[in-house]
């Protein structure tokens, strides 16, 4: 069985769950524990990646530079990773300084049908001799043929692996099997999977991905992440161990890291709330939840209706401003049903 490369998104996707307010001591403490546990890649930063701190999607408590510098100081055995979405982040302003700070792994992400926008960022990362992966977000929104086509673009640009994200936690195992199998068959590079737990399927979906050839799997401590959270890392690694897959991770130390995360980072453990279920059913990015709740309250509309309308409109991350328009429209319809 091939080894599984684990990427820990606690300090990145987890930032979504606390409105990007992770503090310097929290980042330092968790990074130190993850380093001790030998988690291969530790992702750090704003939930939407480098350069994303903004009024639109939320301002970080710390700058990208501060977060990366703090984590870098703690990581001596494992790689420091960043998530980057071209559009939020530019090469000169965001990526080049991050690499100069010692980032080892760059995961260049785009919406699942827009891989073209990742070429320059992938090129640049390769030109600097760093590891680079392509990430296709909201992958449930594209059929497998389109996903394969987009992933092939990333491979041609020089990505050393392609990870598909179930950003809305919308997949069932059969969906994962279908997509991962197609990607593994079509690409020469490793394939990865990033789960969300809206429908309670994150571990099952991650294992399905592995069983169908994925060799890169994301997870986060206690599932700390957007919406209903991610695949719970310490559970994921335990199950992979039981199945005989090597991860190179010290599981005792990982359990200690997860305990620390629960104690020091996570104000309320991820649960599959009613809205998370709706978000998964609607196929809307889990990171929208806090915005939807707040805006629905302002406009006095049912947040579930907002989610289903957002799903109908096929919104993607970065289009958070549409939530207001949807809520406003629903409020007007309620006043004037005709």
């Amino acid at each position: 069985m091939p080894p599984i490369l684990i990427s820990d998104s606690t300090l990145r996707d987890g930032n979504h769950a606390v409105a990007h307010q992770l503090t310097a001591p929290q980042i330092a403490q968790y990074a130190r524990c993850a380093d001790a546990a030998r988690v291969p890649i530790v992702e750090v930063g704003h939930g939407n990646g480098l350069g994303a701190s903004s009024l639109q999607v939320g301002e970080s408590a710390l700058t990208d530079h501060e977060q990366l510098r703090i984590a870098r100081e703690q990581l001596s055995h494992v790689k420091l990773g960043v998530h980057i979405i071209p559009g939020f982040a530019t090469i000169n302003k965001d990526l080049a300084p991050a690499l100069a700070l010692g980032v080892d792994v760059v995961r260049v992400a785009s919406h699942c049908t827009e891989a073209d926008i990742t070429q320059r960022h992938i090129d640049y990362t390769r030109s600097q001799g760093k590891e680079v992966y392509g990430v296709l977000m909201m992958s449930h929104m594209a059929p497998r043929e389109i996903l394969v086509e987009q992933a092939l673009k990333m491979e041609s640009y020089g990505a050393e692996g392609v990870v598909i994200m179930d950003s809305a936690g919308a997949y069932l195992p059969v969906d994962v099997a279908e997509r991962i199998s197609a990607l593994v068959a079509a690409l020469r590079i490793p394939i990865g999977f990033h789960a969300h737990n809206n429908l309670g399927m994150s571990i099952a979906n991650s294992l399905t991905a592995v069983e169908h050839g994925a060799t890169i799997i994301d997870g986060s401590a206690r599932g700390f992440g957007a919406g209903a959270g991610n695949a719970q890392l310490e559970v994921l690694v335990a199950v992979l161990m039981r199945m005989g897959y090597a991860t190179g991770i010290d599981h005792y130390k990982l359990l200690e890291a997860a305990d620390l995360a629960e104690r020091e980072l996570i104000p309320s453990l991820p649960t599959i709330s009613s809205l998370s279920i709706v978000s998964g059913l609607a196929g809307v990015f889990s990171g929208f939840t806090k915005h939807v709740v707040r805006i629905a309250q302002t406009y006095q509309v049912d947040p579930r209706d907002v989610f289903f309308e957002l799903g109908r409109r096929k919104v993607v991350a970065g289009q958070e401003d549409i939530i207001i328009e949807v809520a406003d429209t629903l409020a007007k319809q309620r006043k004037d049903p005709a």
Partner: peptide
Amino acid sequence: LDRPWAINNFIRDCLMGGPIRILG
């Protein structure tokens, strides 16, 4: 050397001080 062909990338990696990374 930025063209995505193996030998170009190897030489670029080498000129930058390595490591040289091989797919597969």
